[in-house]
Simulated scan of single mutants.
Amino acid sequence: MSDLATTVTVIDACGRVAVPVLLLSDPGMGKSSLVRGIAAAEGVPCETVLGSIREPADVAGLPVVTDHGVTLSPPAWAQRLAEAAAGYLFLDELTTCPPAVQAAMLAVALDRVVGDLALPPAVRVVAGANPPDRAADGWEMSPPLANRFCHITFQPSVDDWLDGMTVGWSAPPASRAITADPTRAEAVKALVTGFIRHKPEHLHTFPRTAEGTGGPWPSRRVWAMLAAALANVRDNDAAARQAITFGLVGEGVCVEFLTWCERVDLPDPAAVVDDPSLVDWTDRPDRVWAVLSAVVGWAASAGTAEAWRKAWGPLLAAAEAGAPDVLAAAARPLAQCRPASARVPATVRARFAPVLAAARLSGAGAA
């Protein structure tokens, strides 16, 4: 359960990277008021789509025969958002939507595609739902739809409600989210990939109960969503980090992942590239992998020949310390992201010949 300021932060952090958020609460908690208030505070429109009174074509687009074939004409609400170029799409009462409408919402929720219309990048998707047993003619959410959202339990405090009544619902708390730069984004991605290398059984865990499939659970898709969204909250914002992680991968895996993140304590990849001796390369393999993964991500995001050549330094340092399995796993993606103008350093060619051959770089000239 998140406080109102954390909920606003999660919506903002997820919205910056096109991760849709699902607000779950009892009826009458103010989910729609919050989303409309955020939109009003940002000066953008909010379009509410109530799926229980819609047909699938009202969400996925109405087939129209033209001289060039059949097109899917987007509904008016989607056209208005496209014309505004920004705003919020609020999919309300999601657990009252019949399965056919839920299926139509799959592309809308994550890809923001309505019929043949792609919504602008600045359009954010938020949904609201009551538990199925408390919704009018409630339906369990389908696993594919549930796995497209960051699930947030929404229960504003008494003080939150009093503040809203006093100052108006169009003045929500300020977001604590940040915009991640490429270095931070790659560092967080390294945390996610490092954890999965440490605990590969958590990469995809389909729930064993029907009730569980309607909530957050780990999949390849949500781990990628987590890496993107988590980069937009500060490391010391424990509430937002926990809410996003819990909302995407579920409680048990959330605890394991956040505990592992605290324990692994990754250094800045740029600092490691400048001075590989900052790292104890004889440390735990999962930590060494995470550090090298962050270095590879740093080089890939930089996209320059110089960064690519420098990124081999930590790998060579790790090789001297001895970590063959981890080393090969990090060397492969680094070899594959070589800029066209980059030449393979002679020391790298001697040490990583099999990896370079697999990446078809054995013929690239040495620097």
Score class of each variant (00 low, 15 high):
Arg208Val: 05
His198Cys: 03
Met1Asp: 04
Pro144Lys: 05
Val113Asp: 06
Val65Asp: 01
Ala350Met: 07
Leu72Tyr: 11
Ala18Tyr: 00
Ala331His: 04
Glu262Arg: 15
Asp111Lys: 08
Leu4Lys: 06
Pro98Val: 04
Pro156His: 10
Gly303Met: 07
Pro20Ser: 12
Leu81Arg: 02
Asp283His: 06
Glu47Ser: 11
Ala270Phe: 00
Asp163Glu: 14
Asp12Thr: 13
Ala318Thr: 07
Asp275Leu: 02
Glu201Val: 11
Val255Ser: 10
Pro75Glu: 05
Asp133Cys: 03
Asn130Thr: 11
Gly164Ser: 07
Ile11Asp: 01
Ala41Arg: 14
Ser170His: 12
Ser52Glu: 08
Ala190Cys: 00
Ser33Pro: 00
Ala358Tyr: 10
Met1His: 12
Leu117Ser: 07
Thr166Asp: 12
Ala353Phe: 12
Leu226Ile: 01
Pro345Cys: 08
Val114Arg: 04
Ala307Phe: 09
Trp312Leu: 06
Trp308Val: 01
Leu23Arg: 11
Leu110Cys: 04
Arg134Pro: 03
Thr9Ser: 15
Thr193Trp: 11
Val288Tyr: 02
Thr6Met: 10
Pro333Glu: 00
Ala136Tyr: 15
Leu248Trp: 07
Gly69Gln: 07
Ala331Tyr: 07
Asp160Glu: 09
Ala307Gln: 07
Ala190Ile: 10
Lys31Ala: 09
Ala321Cys: 03
Asp235Ala: 14
Val114Ala: 13
Gly164Cys: 10
Ala294Phe: 00
Leu191Gly: 08
Glu186Thr: 14
Pro339Cys: 10
Ala228Met: 08
Ala224Asn: 14
Ala118Trp: 02
Pro276Asp: 07
Leu117Gly: 10
Gly363Arg: 15
Gly212Arg: 12
Ala229Leu: 06
Ala238Leu: 13
Met225Val: 01
Val64Tyr: 06
Ala329Asn: 09
Leu162Gly: 00
Ala346Tyr: 00
Pro27Tyr: 05
Thr66Gly: 12
Ser301His: 13
Pro121Asp: 14
Pro20Phe: 05
Leu316Phe: 05
Gln79Trp: 00
Thr347Asp: 13
Pro173Lys: 02
Glu262Gln: 14
Val288Cys: 15
Ala185Gln: 13
Leu230Thr: 01
Ala5Arg: 15
Thr183Trp: 02
Ala171Cys: 04
Ala300Ser: 07
Tyr88Thr: 03
Gly363Leu: 13
Arg343Thr: 07
Ile152Val: 15
Thr96Asp: 13
Pro333Ala: 08
Ser170Glu: 13
Ala190Arg: 06
Leu278Tyr: 09
Ala224His: 11
Leu145Trp: 11
Val10Ile: 08
Ser277Ile: 05
Ala331Glu: 03
Ser219Val: 02
Asp268Arg: 05
Pro156Glu: 03
Ser33Arg: 14
Val296Trp: 03
Ser33Trp: 11
Cys14Asp: 06
Val65Phe: 10
Ala84Leu: 01
Val123Ile: 04
Ala180Met: 07
Ile244Thr: 06
Ala367Ile: 01
Leu23Phe: 05
Asn147Thr: 06
Arg351Met: 08
Ala40Met: 08
Asp116Phe: 06
Ala367Asn: 12
Arg263Thr: 11
Ala5Val: 05
Val344Tyr: 04
Val158Ile: 13
Asp237Tyr: 09
Ala335Lys: 06
Leu117Pro: 11
Pro172Tyr: 09
Asp163Trp: 03
Ala146Met: 06
Ala331Met: 02
Ala319His: 09
Arg112Val: 12
Leu327Lys: 09
Ser33His: 14
Cys14Glu: 03
Leu191Glu: 13
Val10Ala: 05
